[in-house]
Design a protein around this nucleic acid. Structure first.
Length: 231
DNA sequence: GCGACAG
DNA sequence: ATCTTGTCGC
């Protein structure tokens, strides 16, 4: 049974988010080398806006040892709901869980998982990145183009330059510059991670692109499979 | 009441 | 999320 069973209902999800936000799991500390998992949901091309429940998607999940690719899987999925800010888990939660569990069936033990979503930067302090970590019982880090509710100043324009993303007085993430002259990433504290650990980990996983390698591989796998499917 | 608002 | 051409740079 899915950890996101029933979460397509917004009221049910909101209650679960409040419950998760109050939990205090042990902090995760990355070792010298880490095995990283990541997943990306690619919806069918052509559709724009919030979409609707049942939308078809291809989900790619990839694992890396530090920055080196280990393996990847692809699964098909259906959106649990239309997109609504604060309720991304209703739309993508179950799909991400399915893909990441498929990845975990492989003989690799994940240390941490990256997802395109916020964590504590959320109306109920439990965005999808935090939620998926609780469900999978794995530390998680969120990576997005912009914050959901948190705000912070422009980070210094140098590799590693960062500023704090603050929500209601709480540091929930960081604006992180992974490449000079390129707009920063919003990195989110999520399940068992704080802003500093999340930020430093993401910086260490970024090499040739703005997007950290595990997420880049997951996205590539998803889009490639989507293209195949369209033939 | 109106707009903002992860993907 | 997805839609989009050319263009600057290595």
């Amino acid at each position: 049974m899915s950890g996101f069973a029933g979460m397509q209902d917004l009221e049910t999800l909101a209650r679960e988010q409040v419950r998760l936000a109050a939990l205090t799991p042990d902090a995760w500390r990355p070792g010298a080398h880490i095995v990283v998992g990541a997943a990306f949901v690619a919806f069918a091309r052509g559709e724009q806006g919030p979409g609707r429940a049942g939308d078809h998607a291809v989900i790619g999940a990839a694992a890396t040892r530090d920055t080196t690719p280990l393996n990847s899987v692809v699964v098909d999925g259906r959106a649990g709901a239309r997109y609504k800010p604060g309720y991304l888990a209703a739309r993508e939660g179950a799909m991400l869980e399915t893909a990441l569990r498929a990845l975990m069936d492989e003989p690799v033990e994940l240390d941490v998982v990256l997802v395109d979503a916020t964590g504590r930067d959320h109306p109920r302090r439990a965005g999808l990145a935090l939620h998926i970590g609780a469900v999978l019982d794995l530390p998680t880090i969120g990576v997005t183009h912009r914050p959901l509710l948190a705000t912070g100043p422009e980070p210094p324009d140098e590799i590693g330059g960062f500023s704090e993303l603050v929500l209601d007085g709480e540091v929930v993430g960081r604006w992180l510059r992974v490449r000079q002259g390129v707009r920063p990433l919003a990195v989110h504290a999520a399940w068992r991670t704080d802003a500093a650990v999340a930020s430093e980990t993401v910086l260490g996983l970024t090499t040739v692109a703005r997007t950290p390698e595990p997420l880049r591989f997951a996205r590539m796998a998803a889009r490639e499979a989507r293209a195949q499917k369209a033939r």
